[in-house]
């Protein structure tokens, strides 16, 4: 095992110990719970390894056409996305939301959502696969495009 890996392992173990033994620090991120009883993997494993699961799934999907949802980013979003008081989805990378709050705390730039959807598809418009709904979907999209309203407004 290389020195780099040993150091990484050490850091992971210390992080795990700290996170397991200390109650939430005063400045620890506060974020909403996801749906359901528990995540697709135990919480401690997800905290440390979610990025590994995502990268693995990403390559399987892009190159091999594997479309399982267990470790997909879409599944993360579907489960952890929140709605505001008006019933609209809040982008998962908005301040205080599930993904953003932790990454901000850990000073990690979250760039998944420069390309990936930040909310389930029905959050934008009901389109596409529903027969006969194409026109209304396009109209909704056009209306959104012309309103020039950033989606981040929904977070307020």
């Amino acid at each position: 095992m290389s020195a780099g890996r040993l150091i990484l392992l050490g850091v992971c173990m210390v992080t795990a110990l700290v996170s397991a033994n200390t109650p939430a620090a005063a400045d620890a991120p506060v974020f909403p719970r996801g749906k359901g009883e528990q995540c697709v993997e135990p919480t401690q494993i997800m905290r440390k390894n979610h990025m590994e699961f995502l990268v693995h799934q990403r390559d399987d999907t892009v190159y091999q056409g594997v479309r399982t949802t267990k470790h997909s980013l879409k599944n993360c979003v579907d489960c952890h996305v929140q709605k505001n008081s008006a019933g609209q989805f809040i982008p998962i990378d908005a301040p205080g939301q599930f993904c953003q709050s932790c990454h901000e705390f850990a000073s990690v730039k979250l760039d998944c959502f420069e390309c990936h959807a930040t909310m389930p598809d029905e959050g934008h418009a009901k389109l596409g696969n529903i027969p006969g709904n194409m026109e209304s979907g396009a109209a909704t999209l056009t209306a959104h495009a012309f309103s020039k309203k950033p989606f981040n407004d929904a977070a307020q």
Binding site: E114, H116, T118, P150
Partner: peptide, 28 residues
């Protein structure tokens, strides 16, 4: 920068894109 991508069709600034033959549909 884009903000309204579909979950099955990620698109983002700084990358090249083209017809995917709707690969998400073909896989389905």
């Amino acid at each position: 920068s884009l903000h309204n991508q579909k979950s099955y069709s990620p698109r983002g600034k700084g990358t090249v894109e083209s017809c995917t033959l709707c690969v998400h549909r073909i896989d389905d």
